[in-house]
Design a protein around this nucleic acid. Structure first.
Lengths: 229, 229
DNA sequence: TTTATCCGAGAGCACCGCTCTCAATTGTTC
DNA sequence: GAACAATTGAGAGCGGTGCTCTCGGATAAA
């Protein structure tokens, strides 16, 4: 049950986020202006502060919105592949991340680019949506591991790392061994590194005529790291 | 031969870059203000425009400065390891990138974070210093390959990618095969992905008690991708 | 119907990037 | 040494920003 007042407020908030996303696309994170959003909302600049405490709070809203959009895209892509095809699921995840990043570069930049200085994302709002991709990746690997689709060698590990990993395993109810956790974190960061390079244009003058082909050529490398087959 | 006037101008420019770097550290790229730099320079705000055309040009100066600092750090680290130890050289490179990024997070963010919106780095000034790290990496791998320290399987490659790679090989005078180029680009992006995650704090709540150990644990993975031994 | 809450408008503060004009300084040339 | 030109700093000013404050009207709750 919500009063009409709450309804109206909620709708205005949604409209602010929508306008903010558009401005993000057009002018980037640094160019996001509360005054401009207020103008597009058809309201005087000071009125926007009735809904958003400050610029950072609008950034947080857009951050959560972006994490959820990426999470939805990745989940949908993974769900489209059979569970007994872990390689296919992993590739679906990787491609979904890349495609979403290329489709929404400004939003992607807000999520995975340099942090906005002086702005610290409030953990209690952002960690849950922000961990959806790695969570999905771990799910895929955990399931693959159970089905004997992971083949990794053994290597002695730094004891402090092993302790961290034990904790993570306990919290998430996982059974994968340390070596797979190492590989998962490596592939996670590597995947976003590759997408970063492409979205942010860091491949530089070495522009590849077919970036998608380069990405595809990298997938077997990621799978080798994971021992996924 | 340079006139005293040119000397003075050059010194002022250097001072501006120094002040700019400090401001970058303190307030980040988005908070970099020409007026504030002018104040620190002990000059009225409009006078700064005698030296720097606009804010973007100062960003370019800092960008080039940063690329060169990183390149110097990496080169020095690699030179400290014997050439017949390609694994050691690769690790020196990787660790140098990580350490420099952690030591200069704001500068690192300017180089490898989300691009400043509306600002396009002028290629003719930035590509040369901006490619020093990948160039050094390729040098290490090329030399290792010549010495039979690279063992990679064969895989059929997308023909357009193969064409790109041929061109790169010709331009740089390289002899490594396609598979090693793929692996080099993968490791390049993966390395910066890992450093991004750590510098930008994207590992999130999954804070590792010893990030350096995690990084070290990833090094063998990179080397496996490269077939480096 | 009264009361309390909410919300938009407007003025205002300090800051920003950037431009313009003017005066002082400096180095060059006759 | 004097006239000249180039360089540089100061100052005012424009439109923009984030953000705060106060005020008055609309609206829901009592």
């Amino acid at each position: 049950m919500q009063t009409p007042r709450e309804r109206a407020r909620q709708q205005t908030m949604a409209e602010i986020v929508t306008i903010g996303r558009r401005h993000l696309e057009l002018h980037g994170a640094a160019g996001l202006s509360l005054r401009a959003v207020a103008r597009d909302l058809g309201v005087v600049s000071s009125a926007i502060y009735r809904y958003v405490k400050n610029r950072d709070e609008l950034l947080t809203l857009l951050l959560v919105d972006g994490y959820d959009a990426l999470g939805d895209a990745v989940d949908a892509a993974v769900q489209g592949v059979a569970e007994d095809d872990p390689v296919g699921r992993f590739r679906a995840l990787a491609r979904a991340v890349r495609q979403w990043g290329l489709a929404e570069p400004a939003c992607y930049g807000l999520l995975f680019g340099s942090p906005v200085p002086g702005y610290e994302a409030p953990a209690e709002q952002t960690t849950a949506p922000g961990t959806r991709v790695i969570f999905q990746l771990v799910q895929i690997l955990e399931s693959a591991d159970h089905n004997g689709r992971i083949a990794l060698g053994d290597r002695t590990l730094d004891p402090r790392l092993a302790a961290d990993f034990s904790k993570i395993r306990d919290e998430k109810g996982l059974t994968m061994d340390d070596q797979l956790v190492v590989a998962a974190v490596l592939v996670w960061s590597a995947l976003f590194g590759a997408v970063n390079f492409e979205v942010f244009g860091h491949y530089g003058q070495t522009t590849f005529s077919d970036p998608a082909a380069l990405f595809e050529a990298h997938l077997p490398g990621y799978e080798a790291i994971l021992g996924l087959r």
